[in-house]
Amino acid sequence: MEAEGHGVTPLKAPAYASEGRPVARSAIAAPYPLTREWAFGDGSGAGVRVCILDSGVDATHPDVGGPLAAYQVAEADGSGGYTVVPDADGDVAGHGTACASIVRALAPACEMTSVRVLGGALRGRGDALIAALEWALDEGFDIVNMSLSTRHPDFRDAIRDLSDRAYFGGTTIVAAANNRPVASYPWRFPAVISVGSHATQDGEHIEVNPAPPVEFFALGINVLAAQPGNRRVRLSGNSFAAPHVTGMCARILNRHPGFGAPQLKAVLAGIANNLT
């Protein structure tokens, strides 16, 4: 891109983190401005079923609160495959607890389920991730939060097939984008909602990205989040931007229960803060 040498940024250069670019309202598929009141309803996310595929969740943390169904991926007896079983270990790592607390802050009444797919021997096991995602689709969750990705080419097609199945089956996958131009999954697939970071200190601030593959930016910088042991830390990363969009989608689905990923993308774009 020779234009960069002259200080001109090409309009379509992909943005992996918010550059604060505005988007014309005329570029959004909404005939008139959407209000957050119409989009979010009472803002509780009540009745919406959210699944967190992560390192587990510490359900005893007050910021996570409420009942939480906990599962983990485990090796199936003898078959070499993986199955999903109840989990009593909580979250030894802390990443999933942080994500769950962010979702809960935005959608306090949503129904939350955790499936532990990270930690120890599960890392890098693409087939374990696939088993968990398949289980989540079978269970018919409304939203699956995936603040993780894999680059392993062996699992790309299977994860894409599951992403497509989710798209048509009414389960919305919200995935943390990578902050570098690499091919990793599932965030690169158009069937999921991919999320990068902005730094505006407002958990409800969302930007639609005029230069995908990252589609939306949510708060991912200096996010106050829960940690096991009744602790809190400030975290930065796309891992913590995705749960903000998951929380907003839970609010929207409480108000508009029939919406799937395509409608949710349209509504998120319609309420984006960077429309001009």
Partner: peptide, 16 residues
């Protein structure tokens, strides 16, 4: 976390 998720991250401890 970074190793497990493949994501770049930052943390500021709050003096817990």
């Amino acid at each position: 976390w970074v190793f497990q998720t493949g994501q770049t991250m930052a943390l500021n401890d709050l003096g817990n």
